[in-house]
Design a protein around this nucleic acid. Sequence first.
DNA 1: ATGGCACATATTGGATGCAAAATTTGATGA
DNA 2: TCATCAAATTTTGCATCCAATATGTGCCAT
Lengths: 208, 208
Amino acid sequence: MSTNLDHATQSLRELVLSGAFAPDRKLGEEAVARALGLSRTPARIAMATLEREGLLVRTPRRGYRVRSFTIDEVAGAIDVRGELEAMAARLVAERGLDAAIETRFEAAMAQSEAIVERSALNVADRLAWTQANMDFHEALIDGSGNIALRAAFDQVIRIPLASPRAIMFAVATADRSRGQLRRAHDDHLRVVEAIRARRGAAIACAPS
Amino acid sequence: MSTNLDHATQSLRELVLSGAFAPDRKLGEEAVARALGLSRTPARIAMATLEREGLLVRTPRRGYRVRSFTIDEVAGAIDVRGELEAMAARLVAERGLDAAIETRFEAAMAQSEAIVERSALNVADRLAWTQANMDFHEALIDGSGNIALRAAFDQVIRIPLASPRAIMFAVATADRSRGQLRRAHDDHLRVVEAIRARRGAAIACAPS
DNA sequence: ATGGCACATATTGGATGCAAAATTTGATGA
DNA sequence: TCATCAAATTTTGCATCCAATATGTGCCAT
């Protein structure tokens, strides 16, 4: 089960990420509460959570505001994500693939393979590819079996456009060529192969 | 200025880290509120924050409990920290040292150098060394100029015993030999030297 | 004696009320 | 006209209150 609070936090997160509030402008508790259809108490808690996530900035006694990110900051986040994923791949290679993770890898790969092979790619295809891409990266992180790595990853992908989910849209806004998808897919193939061969070292791939 | 909430969060964090509450046991709002000398509202926000940090676990409608960490999880966190610091060192080497960071490096190095040279080390010395060690690592992260790296680092060092502050006490509980301190100090020297020489690659050091 | 059910109690989740601090507005004087 | 200061209003931060749900206890039936 979930509570209203979880829902409120997620809603507010989506609102902020969708740009519903202007960056660097004051974000009043009352306004947020109204936007969420709740009172100020859960709104306040959701805002505190988003502050910890880095999406909002709080100045004591002066409220919250939406944090803005520069291109360099986003690029930096993607760098860190790549580093963490490379580490995850090494760890998975060392530990070996357990059945559950292997299943997730294969499902994601099959899905993305099918899409890449298609002749014409519509919006639904691209969304599906994005999902498969995310599933792959999530499986990689989970496979590492390192909860600190997982926590760091979660922290980093909260930076707008740094997530595997966002990359699709970041590159030329929803118009990524099949060639790029193909390349990302091949990268993933190489990673899985290296993991299977237990060659942990020197796994690196372009962000996807 | 700071508010009561910031104090509450910090106090609760320290209480949890100090083991004031038994792990995996229910942590009632009322109890926390009393422990903090505040009402339930700020207590709840502080608990939500600590949940996001990973120190508490929440089950909806069933409250929070203190999260327990295994040895492996702590070790994993230290691994991730090392990886992030290595990345930071590379980035600093690429960017070059700006004056402010260089000053911080030198202050930390001087402090730790002075302590390592001392003949007998009392508790105050060890605390001071811990502080200098922390300052060094903080300067390294800040010097990277990558806010995502900073955020990931902050997330990881919240795992008990994974912080540069905690390492001192983790190894044989406040009885680290001068040899170990010496080695850590030398590691730091090597890192700074490599950074000065702009050799970003292959910087790695033992946790300290 | 033990398992299950109903009732009593405690606790969470959310709304509202209140005081303090900050921002805005308006007035006054230079 | 513009700056400055003060009053009014808004907003934050915290405490308390209320409803809904979970938990604990004791009784009853088998």
